[in-house]
């Protein structure tokens, strides 16, 4: 069980390493479509409201509606605010969310999708079985 517990910790540490590596990145959240977090890593700079499920879940509606715009399925939505930016990617049944400063490099955040794809496959296996229960 000690080894099993370490997996979650290892994941969090890995996410924190990424946060340290990218200038201006404050939080990485992997959640389900309702915004309930599966795993997340955040620094103290992140606005707490951005971590709430009600906020993250707006992406589910947004991506569904955006898929109707005639450009085929929506993959990602970038929301720019005065001080922050939120980059959310649709990795059904999961949502991958990044909360960063508005000056952070959006291209790098979008590029993190490739880097985290292996990790997301593992997490998806965990969530899928839970969701179908």
């Amino acid at each position: 069980m000690v080894e099993a517990f370490n997996y979650s910790q290892e994941l969090k540490q890995y996410l924190h390493r990424i946060i340290r590596r990218v200038d201006g990145l404050y939080a990485i959240i992997v959640s389900d479509r309702d915004g309930v977090p599966v795993i997340r890593a955040a620094t103290e700079n992140v606005p707490e409201l951005a971590l709430r499920p009600g906020f993250l879940a707006t992406f589910s509606t947004g991506t569904d509606q955006a898929s109707k715009l005639g450009l085929s399925r929506n993959k990602a939505i970038v929301s720019m605010y005065t001080s922050y930016q939120v980059v959310q990617l649709s990795k059904l049944p999961l949502i991958l969310s990044f909360v960063a400063s508005s000056q952070a490099n959006t291209g790098v955040l979008l590029g993190l999708e490739n880097e985290l794809s292996d990790l997301l496959k593992d997490i998806k296996a965990a969530v899928d079985i839970t969701v179908s229960q």
């Binding site: 099993a4 370490n6 290892e10 969530v127 839970t130």
Partner: peptide, 21 residues
């Protein structure tokens, strides 16, 4: 749900190769 997910995560069988990734 949050506790379900985290317990589900920790119960995944981890071989060394997964962590090495």
């Amino acid at each position: 749900r949050a506790t379900q997910y985290s317990s589900r995560l920790t119960s995944i069988c981890h071989s060394a190769s997964v962590l090495n990734k």
